[in-house]
């Protein structure tokens, strides 16, 4: 009786591709990654010109001195001071162990790109993908075609969700691939085995290095993109719920963009409002836990953020299913 889930997912995939959503995502990546590559290239060149050297040790040493001078000026806000202090300690640790934290190369670029993209850029791309997945069927009236066939409603919604998971994963994969391929033209394709340090712990404003260990960069990238994937799945799931609740794609887009952008603002000033750590948008910078920078609010850890994000995603799914299954289709 009735169609298989595979057939339903096939339908949803065809519609998503025909609506050109994935194409738009690829185009955004293909335009923005070269821009970031060029910006990265410029900043390296400028630094080298300013210092008159290409030795990374000298450059890193100079950066540490610069930051320490700023810290001494003492007109900085307290949170910012702490953030810089931790960074200096970390840079010193890299220097002491003779590891270049930004050794040029496509894998390093991909790592830096994910650090930058994980809390706003990638989530926005996922919103583009997911925001009208359900609401378009309502606004175009085609929901009638889906709900008057021998398929239970939960199955219809599940086929859409599976399709979203597929394309979210594909988007993260394409981000890595395009970041690597495009930036490699400028920086070269080597550097998978470069050592990267992780396991930094921040306790009471001090960097704890007792648990620090070294990873080859490819392993680090795997972990980092895994966390990025998780962030994208969570944002996609929440957008999916919005798509069920809100008929208009423009309204859904507005809601999600407002949430994501206020999240970025909050993470920069949230240390004074502690309970904001339970908002999903404050927990998107997961890759920072790997890199060992100061979390936006004291006491936030990787397991804490993973838990908060999971709870949000599960709650969003429950709301989406409950509403989709019960709601009457009006004209």
């Amino acid at each position: 009786m009735g169609p298989s889930m595979l057939a339903l997912v096939q339908n949803e995939t065809i519609k998503l591709l025909r609506r050109r959503r994935f194409l738009v995502v690829l185009l955004i990546l293909a335009v923005l990654i070269p821009i970031f590559t060029y910006a990265q290239y410029r900043s390296v060149v400028t630094a080298q010109e300013r210092m008159g050297t290409t030795d990374w040790r000298t450059l890193l040493q100079q950066q540490i001195v610069d930051t320490q001078n700023r810290l001494a000026s003492s007109r900085l806000p307290e949170e910012w001071r702490e953030f810089l202090k931790i960074r200096v300690q970390q840079q010193q640790y890299y220097l002491d162990h003779d590891i270049n934290p930004m050794a040029p190369g496509a894998p390093t670029f991909a790592r830096g790109f994910m650090d930058q993209a994980v809390s706003l850029f990638l989530p926005m791309i996922i919103v583009v993908l997911a925001v009208d997945l359900v609401s378009a069927e309502y606004s175009e009236g085609t929901i009638k075609l889906l709900l008057t066939r021998p398929v239970r409603r939960w199955k219809v919604l599940t086929s859409k969700y599976i399709t979203l998971l597929l394309f979210t994963s594909l988007t993260v994969l394409m981000t890595l691939l395009l970041a690597y391929l495009i930036s490699g033209v400028v920086f070269g394709y080597a550097g998978w085995d470069l050592p990267v340090l992780t396991g930094f712990d921040v306790t009471g404003g001090e960097l704890v290095t007792s648990a620090v260990f070294m990873l080859p960069q490819w392993k680090y990238l795997l972990m980092q993109y895994g966390l990025g994937w998780f962030v994208c799945i969570v944002v996609g799931t929440i957008t999916f719920m919005v798509s069920v609740l809100v008929r208009s794609a423009a309204a859904g887009m507005g809601i999600m963009m407002a949430a994501l952008i206020s999240g970025t603002i909050l993470t920069q000033m949230a240390s004074t409002w502690e309970s904001s750590k339970y908002l999903f948008v404050v927990n998107l910078q997961l890759t920072d836990y790997l890199a060992g920078t100061l979390p936006p609010i004291k006491g936030m850890t990787l397991p804490f953020s993973l838990a908060v994000l999971s709870v949000w995603a599960v709650a969003a799914l429950i709301v989406a299913y409950a509403v989709f299954i019960r709601r009457d289709v009006a004209s």
């Binding site: 169609p3 339903l8 096939q10 339908n11 025909r18 609506r19 175009e140």
Partner: peptide, 29 residues
């Protein structure tokens, strides 16, 4: 056992007629 058109015939405008029918066929099994 039911075929229906409620109010207007709603179709996926960005797909061809055949793709619409194929979509519908997969929905019916």
């Amino acid at each position: 056992q039911v075929g229906c058109i409620v109010e207007n015939p709603e179709l996926y405008k960005f797909m061809t007629g055949r793709e619409n029918l194929e979509h519908f066929a997969r929905m019916s099994g």
